[in-house]
């Protein structure tokens, strides 16, 4: 069928992009050499491949896929095309956690920054969740506003802390907020990929409720769907996924906003295929952004967040205006 074909093309593109990402860089390899490099642990190329390129590529795949998946779900449950994984304040909370850790010097005591990022994200998720529940009902509109407000408060707190700190720490904070795929710990990287693939599977189980919610919560409820429970579960899943991504790679913006729209443009709004499509497209997109970040000013590297914003934004505007397509909003 049409959908199977399109998903297969995306999957194929993901494989090709990953392979390309492995061989390109400051020290280019030929694809044919990869097996021999892998079998020779003593070579420099082996180190580059296993400690730099493989983890980066896997991380780009996991984070691009997760953020795009979270974005498509959140836009669906809030029925708002401008929602992205960071709208609910999760990134702001993580940033406060990391900034606090850097400013207070806690970060120097051997605890990874990602721990503080995740802790900050968890606090925000808890706040948004509890503040938006009243009489055991969850108002999505209120939740969105509370999330946005927490984002604003967090960014002010981050600025406050930044104004109190020294130049070296300031540098650390700014670099963290720009996001980076430099995570050399293969365990972390593969765990994140595992989690994101499992979560993709779990969220696909909610495709039918998500489809019904395309015409509003009331309609879905009249079709027998307990929207309150579904929204809670999906909120918790997407928040934890987003929190994990931020903890590992900092704030990589834009993927979670535009890849859902891009996926809707090419495959439609049926969540049964939209969810896997968004995941695959997000993964492909972030792999390419990472490739560009590595080669544009090689041997130096651009922050990945810069590429996702500029490259992603321009590409999306071109697609939107050239095809004369009506954007299919959430």
């Amino acid at each position: 069928m049409k959908y199977t074909l399109m998903l297969s093309i995306s999957a194929l593109l993901l494989v090709l992009s990953s392979l390309f990402s492995l061989v390109i860089g400051e020290v280019p390899f030929s694809l044919a050499d990869v097996p021999s490099i892998l079998s020779d642990p003593s070579s420099m190329e082996h180190g580059i491949l296993t400690h730099i390129r493989i983890p980066r590529t896997i991380l780009a795949m996991a984070i691009g896929g997760s953020l795009s998946l979270c974005g498509v779900i959140l836009q669906g449950i809030y029925r708002n095309p401008l929602v992205e994984p960071y709208t609910l304040g999760i990134s702001g909370g993580a940033a406060v956690g990391v900034t606090l850790a850097i400013v207070t010097g806690l970060a120097m005591k051997g605890i990874p920054l990602s721990f503080f990022g995740f802790a900050g994200a968890l606090v925000t998720i808890f706040l948004v969740y509890t503040l938006s529940i009243r009489n055991n009902r969850m108002s999505t509109g209120k939740m969105l506003l509370i999330g946005v407000m927490i984002s604003f408060i967090s960014s002010s707190v981050v600025m406050l802390l930044m104004s109190l700190t020294n130049a070296e720490q300031l540098h650390g904070i700014i670099f963290w907020t720009m996001g980076s795929l430099n995570e050399t710990d293969n365990t972390v990287v593969f765990t994140l990929l595992g989690i994101s693939v499992v979560m993709l599977g779990v969220t696909i189980l909610f495709a039918v409720p998500l489809n019904a919610m395309r015409l509003g919560e009331a309609k879905a409820r009249h079709l027998g769907i307990n929207t309150t429970v579904i929204i809670r579960i999906l909120f918790i899943i997407t928040s934890l996924m987003t929190g994990s991504c931020i903890a590992v790679a900092g704030i990589i913006g834009f993927v979670g906003l535009i890849m859902p729209h891009f996926s809707r443009l090419i495959i439609g709004t049926d969540y049964r295929v939209l969810l896997p499509s968004a995941f695959l497209n997000g993964a492909i997109f972030l792999i390419w952004c990472d490739i560009l970040a590595r080669i544009i000013i090689s041997p130096n590297e651009l922050p990945i967040g810069v590429i996702t914003g500029i490259f992603g934004g321009i590409t999306f505007i071109i697609i939107l205006s050239s095809r004369r397509v009506k954007p299919r909003l959430a």
Partner: peptide, 9 residues
């Protein structure tokens, strides 16, 4: 319902 919701379906 009184007001039927439309959407991209």
């Amino acid at each position: 319902p009184q007001f039927v919701e439309t959407g991209p379906i």
